[in-house]
């Protein structure tokens, strides 16, 4: 096949205290993971406004990954539980308009879990390759 392989665009909103640190650890440990992910550091997964996720999809993201602390470990008491509730809401609304659930991932990755971070990004990239490009058309952006 001569067609260029589809490389998904993943926007990742990572909590500074856990998943972002895990990404750092993955790097310093020389772990290899797909370069499809573009990381945005947040102070807490509970700070990820649904608008950020929506805007990402409207601007051409194929997937969005939110990384937070394990339940009970959030530095702001329960930001991660709020993130979980919002993701459930977003799954319902986005899927209503044809954006599959598997394009929005929420995962708990602790600061020490560099491996888990690399694995998650690898798995998500693979899954998005199966799904193909997100069909949000340019017309829908406005």
């Amino acid at each position: 096949m001569s067609e260029k392989q589809f490389e998904p665009n993943i926007v990742a909103f990572l909590c500074n205290w856990c998943t972002f640190t895990a990404a750092d650890l993955a790097g310093t440990s020389r772990l290899i993971y797909p370069s499809n992910v573009k990381i945005i550091r947040m102070m807490c997964s509970g700070m990820v406004d649904p608008k950020y996720v929506l805007k990402s999809f409207l601007e051409g993201a194929d997937g969005v990954f939110i990384g937070g602390c394990w339940p009970g470990d959030c530095h702001y008491i329960n930001g991660n539980m709020k993130a979980r509730r919002r993701v459930a809401l977003m799954h319902e609304v986005l899927e209503r308009f044809g954006i599959e659930r598997d394009r929005l991932w929420l995962r708990w990755v602790a600061a020490s879990e560099g491996n888990a971070f690399a694995d998650t990004v690898t798995a998500m990239t693979g899954r998005l390759k199966e799904l193909g490009p997100c069909r949000v058309s340019r017309e829908a952006v406005a």
């Binding site: 609304v93 308009f97 952006v141 406005a142």
Partner: peptide, 24 residues
């Protein structure tokens, strides 16, 4: 970036955000 832009902008953005805020 897109070649063209419908104005006013952010229309789908507005409606979907409102759904996320209050559809429950």
């Amino acid at each position: 970036h897109r070649g063209h832009l419908k104005m006013p902008t952010d229309t789908v953005f507005f409606h979907v955000t409102r759904m996320l805020h209050m559809s429950t």
